[in-house]
Simulated scan of single mutants.
Amino acid sequence: MASRSARKLTAYENQPGGRITSISAQKKKISRVNISIDGEYAFSVHVDVLLSENLIAGQSLSEDQIQKICSADDYHLARDLALHFVSYRPRSIQEVKRRLQKANYNISTIDRVITRLLELNMLDDESFASEFIGGRIRNKGYGPRRLKQDLRQKGIHESVIDKTLSEAFAELDPEAMALSAGKKIFPRLSRIPDAHTRRKKLSDYLARRGFEFDHMIHAIDALELYVQNLNS
């Protein structure tokens, strides 16, 4: 039998089919049952798979039937993992794919799970991007470049990034945001006597926060003017 991802194969699963001799509930995972074939433990499945495949003791299974049953169970395992993963916070499609890949599920199983979550409206990259941008602006004050970079890392398509960023910044002033970000560290930087060094450190900080050059210059000039007025 061909090897499958995510499931630990028993010695039996590499052998031809046989007759189900017992079906017993697992003690720790009540949603799963153990299947024994020809008197030996063969594999476990979710109870939903047991019912959907109409598995009963005494039933004979071919190798292909066992493969089909175990593939169906892999889908259940992957789906439950994905549902748990998205329950903590919104996720991008690519984040869910990466999580399932990390758990060694195969591509066809992952695609089935993604399709199902999309059908349930539990995945939506545009909504995810909008929420992500809003949260990063509110909590961290990030500028457009940093937000675009972070969304790319989340696997969001470029067109979705551009659309959601445009909508988010339609009523925001990046220059004012850069100035606000600069004010947070400027009390420390203002103690640096050399203006060039001070401006360089502030510029580097605002660049890491994701602001464009023109927006940074406005903030730096405004803060430098403040220092000059203090020292005059």
Rank of each mutant, 00 (worst) to 15 (best):
L77Q: 08
R79Q: 13
R79C: 07
D80W: 00
D80L: 05
D80H: 12
D80Y: 08
L83W: 07
L83R: 11
F85E: 12
F85T: 09
F85A: 08
V86I: 13
V86A: 04
V86S: 05
S87Q: 11
S87E: 07
S87G: 09
Y88I: 13
Y88Q: 12
R89M: 10
R89G: 07
P90G: 07
P90A: 05
S92A: 07
S92I: 01
S92L: 03
S92V: 04
I93R: 00
V96I: 04
V96E: 10
K97Y: 00
R98D: 10
R98Q: 05
R99F: 12
R99M: 14
R99W: 08
R99T: 10
L100V: 08
L100A: 09
K102V: 12
K102F: 14
K102D: 10
K102S: 07
A103D: 03
N104M: 12
N104L: 07
Y105H: 05
Y105W: 11
N106D: 06
N106Y: 11
N106T: 15
I107K: 13
I107P: 07
I107E: 14
I107R: 14
S108I: 11
S108Q: 15
T109N: 04
T109Y: 01
T109F: 09
T109G: 00
I110F: 02
I110S: 00
I110H: 04
I110G: 02
I110C: 08
I110L: 04
R112D: 12
R112C: 14
R112P: 03
V113W: 02
V113E: 09
V113H: 05
I114L: 11
I114M: 12
T115R: 06
T115D: 04
R116N: 15
L117S: 03
L117R: 01
L118N: 11
E119A: 14
E119S: 15
L120D: 04
N121E: 14
M122F: 15
M122V: 09
M122W: 13
L123K: 04
D124K: 11
D124E: 05
D125F: 00
D125R: 06
D125Q: 02
E126F: 01
S127Y: 08
S127V: 14
F128E: 06
F128D: 00
F128Y: 00
F128Q: 02
S130M: 14
S130Q: 14
I133W: 02
I133G: 06
G134W: 00
G134Q: 00
G135I: 02
G135E: 12
G135Q: 09
R136N: 11
R136M: 13
I137W: 02
I137D: 03
R138G: 08
R138C: 03
N139M: 08
K140R: 12
G141D: 10
Y142C: 10
Y142E: 09
Y142T: 02
Y142Q: 02
G143A: 00
P144D: 11
R145V: 11
R146D: 03
R146Q: 04
L147T: 06
K148C: 10
K148H: 15
K148V: 13
Q149F: 15
Q149T: 09
Q149K: 15
L151V: 04
L151F: 01
L151T: 01
R152P: 00
R152A: 11
K154Q: 05
K154R: 06
G155T: 05
